[in-house]
Amino acid sequence: MPAGNGGLSPRLRKVLEDMAERIIPSGGPDYPGARDVHLADQVIEMIQSFPGAMRGFRAALMLWELSPLFLSFQFRTFSRLSPEGQNHYLESWEKSRFFFRRAALTGLKGLFMVRFYGDARVHEKIGYREGCLQPLEQVVPPWSPEEEGR
């Protein structure tokens, strides 16, 4: 479901795709990952559904891209790190002693997982099936004056 790039430059698009792939890596037919469900496109589509949010999103991606330069002194931007380097960088957020860095990683996970684990193809693989424990035969209606006599 390509949603267009939402005004993302190829570089920012790569940042988004790399982040998605590190957080939910692809691997094997039974374990779909970010690439298998076009997660970057889904995230762009989601952000675009909030009027005006794309601008802030682009800025946040650029900030993330540049952040290794001043947070880990790797002298490389995020998209130029190897996959292992990107994993190490994310790990430094996960294990940070600063609450807000750890919380930010949880937020990032949420951003990608809200689409990934909302995808019917993923539901099938993890065995999740929406539905009620008891058959939903009919909806219980709102109160009506007739109900008082029941």
């Binding site: 590190r22 957080i23 939910i24 890596p25 691997g27 374990y31 990952g33 994993n87 994310l90 996960e94 990683l105 949880t106 937020g107 996970k109 949420g110 997982m113 809200v114 990934f116 684990y117 909302g118 993923v122 539901h123 693989k125 993890i126 065995g127 999740y128």
Partner: peptide, 24 residues
Amino acid sequence: GPVLTGPVLPYFGEKNKELMFKYK
């Protein structure tokens, strides 16, 4: 549901995904 469970489980990447694939 899985959308809200994934982010609060620990780890990211393979380890988190492995856990989520044991969601049942």
